[in-house]
């Protein structure tokens, strides 16, 4: 996506967020469209927010999860996609544990495909949500210093945020233990740090990432308590950031692993629940754009 397209989406989502806050309704509805949400991987907020976004727009929403689909019966991914395509949806929202699946499916179906998170690749609507949340609090994205901290290697949220925020003129830093830092991350325009004190120095936004359970016990970091000691965000480490720095997290939070509970619930600094609310607004903006002719282009 270009900077212009990103701004179009965020501007529209901004307006929708205001309207939702006032009257729980988007500015307009687009009834009659069919959205199939196809989640091959567990998700609470992304899945719910796409469904709610679709419903608020008056779409017919069909929710398919791995547990209820035929992939358990040996049907291949492409067969599943083609089967659903035959039911003529307008939008397919796809979440999959493997990178590139929405890309693969988009070549097999003739409806719009939205990437709702694929493997360690991208999560574009989350990045738009985070950008909207930052802009609403800070007024701009330009010139801000954003520190993304934690399991960068396995994070699609980090990748999408780095892409989007650098396009929008923010300075992006990534902070992670060496075992969770992906190769060549500096080529994406993010500056890598292996220490929270250095990485958070003067930051406007501290974005914490979830540490996946399976990485915690010895395979990538020795233990959760050691991880929290060096990379968990507490008020001590937060001192390095600007006084008005805000805390973000795409959820779900491991309290006491990557983020201290007190900070997570600090309504003055934590934007975590705003991220959730804005997620619906962004997804409404994206769905609108995709079913209207004025679509600026599919994210992802």
């Amino acid at each position: 996506m270009s900077r212009t397209e990103i701004v179009q989406y965020i501007d529209r989502a901004d307006l929708i967020a205001d309207r939702l806050a006032r009257e729980n309704q988007p500015p307009g509805t687009l009834p009659g469209h069919l959205l199939i949400s196809l989640f091959f991987e567990n998700s609470t907020r992304t899945r719910a927010s796409f469904q709610i976004a679709g419903q608020r727009l008056g779409f017919n929403v069909v929710d398919m999860s791995l547990a209820t689909s035929s992939t358990g019966k040996g049907e291949t991914l492409l067969d599943t996609a083609m089967t659903l395509n035959a039911m003529r949806p307008d939008v397919l929202v796809v979440r999959h544990a493997m990178s590139g699946v929405p890309h693969l499916l988009s070549h097999q179906v003739n409806c719009a495909v939205i990437n709702a998170g694929d493997g360690n690749h991208e999560h574009p609507t989350q990045a738009l949500t985070d950008a909207l949340t930052i802009r609403r609090r800070k007024g701009t994205l330009e010139g801000l210093t954003v520190a993304i901290c934690g399991d960068i290697m396995h994070s699609r949220v980090a990748r999408s945020n780095i892409r989007l925020l650098t396009i929008m003129g923010s300075t992006v830093r990534v902070v992670a233990p060496a075992t969770l830092m992906p190769a060549g991350i500096e080529t994406f325009g993010a500056e890598p740090f292996e220490s929270m004190a250095e990485g958070l120095e003067g930051a406007d936004v501290v974005m914490m990432l979830r540490l996946q359970l399976e990485r915690m016990h010895g395979s990538h970091v020795p233990s959760t308590r050691e991880y929290f000691r060096f990379f968990g965000l507490d008020s001590d480490k937060l001192h390095a950031a600007k006084d008005d720095a805000v805390i973000m997290h795409p959820g779900p939070i491991n309290r006491g692993v990557e983020l201290d509970s007190v900070l997570a619930d600090d309504i003055g600094r934590s934007l975590i629940l705003e991220q959730v609310a804005h997620g619906v607004a962004v997804r409404i903006a994206v769905l609108e754009a995709l079913v209207q002719d004025s679509a600026p282009g599919a994210p992802g």
Binding site: S99, G100, D118, G119, N120, H121, E122, R156, R159, P182, A183, G184, I185, T187, F188
Partner: peptide, 15 residues
Amino acid sequence: NAGPLATRLGLPSRP
């Protein structure tokens, strides 16, 4: 192969 392309494509890689 491990490197920036694998990081961008989000694929587990072999160094």
